[in-house]
Amino acid sequence: MNIPLSHEDALLRDTVREFFDKEVIPHEEMVDRFGEVPEEIGRDIEAKARALGLYAANLPERVGGGNLSHTQMALIEREFGRTSHALHSWIARPTELLLACQGDQVDKYLMPCVSGEKRELFALTEPEAGSDAMGMRTNARPDGDDWILNGSKHFISAPTMADFAIVFAVTGTDETKRGPRKRITAFLVDRDLPGVVFREGNRCVSNRGYKTYELIFDNVRLGPGQVLGEEGRGFELAGQWLGMARIWVGATCCGKAERLLELATDWSANRKQFGKPIGTFQATGFRLADMSIGLRTADLLVFDAVRRADAGEMRDEDAAMVKVYCSEVLHKIADDTVQIYGGMGLMEELPVQRLWRDSRIERIWDGTSEIQRHIITRSILRPLGA
Rank of each mutant, 00 (worst) to 15 (best):
286 F>N: 15
110 L>W: 06
191 R>Y: 00
205 V>L: 09
173 T>W: 06
13 R>T: 12
371 I>Q: 15
231 E>S: 14
66 G>R: 09
114 V>Q: 10
90 W>N: 04
79 E>T: 11
384 L>A: 08
153 K>Y: 03
32 D>C: 01
19 F>P: 01
98 L>I: 02
260 L>S: 02
52 L>F: 13
221 R>F: 09
131 S>Y: 07
239 G>A: 15
17 R>F: 04
364 I>C: 06
359 S>Y: 03
102 Q>A: 09
283 A>R: 12
314 M>V: 13
127 P>K: 05
34 F>N: 14
146 D>H: 15
318 D>Y: 01
164 F>E: 00
317 E>N: 05
248 W>K: 06
217 F>W: 01
165 A>L: 04
242 L>W: 12
259 R>V: 10
291 M>I: 07
340 I>V: 09
244 M>T: 13
178 R>G: 08
325 Y>N: 07
8 E>P: 02
173 T>H: 03
363 R>G: 11
225 G>T: 14
105 Q>H: 10
236 E>S: 15
374 H>K: 14
130 G>S: 12
138 T>M: 07
60 P>M: 14
141 R>N: 08
114 V>F: 04
328 E>K: 10
201 G>H: 07
82 R>N: 05
256 K>G: 03
331 H>N: 14
263 L>R: 09
323 K>H: 11
110 L>F: 05
165 A>I: 00
9 D>Q: 11
338 V>N: 03
147 W>F: 13
11 L>R: 11
293 I>Q: 14
252 T>W: 01
54 L>G: 08
214 E>S: 11
363 R>A: 08
78 R>W: 03
155 F>I: 09
133 A>T: 12
108 K>Y: 02
121 L>R: 05
288 L>D: 01
28 E>N: 05
358 D>L: 02
2 N>F: 08
193 L>Y: 06
207 N>H: 15
136 M>T: 11
221 R>Q: 15
133 A>S: 15
126 E>L: 04
359 S>H: 01
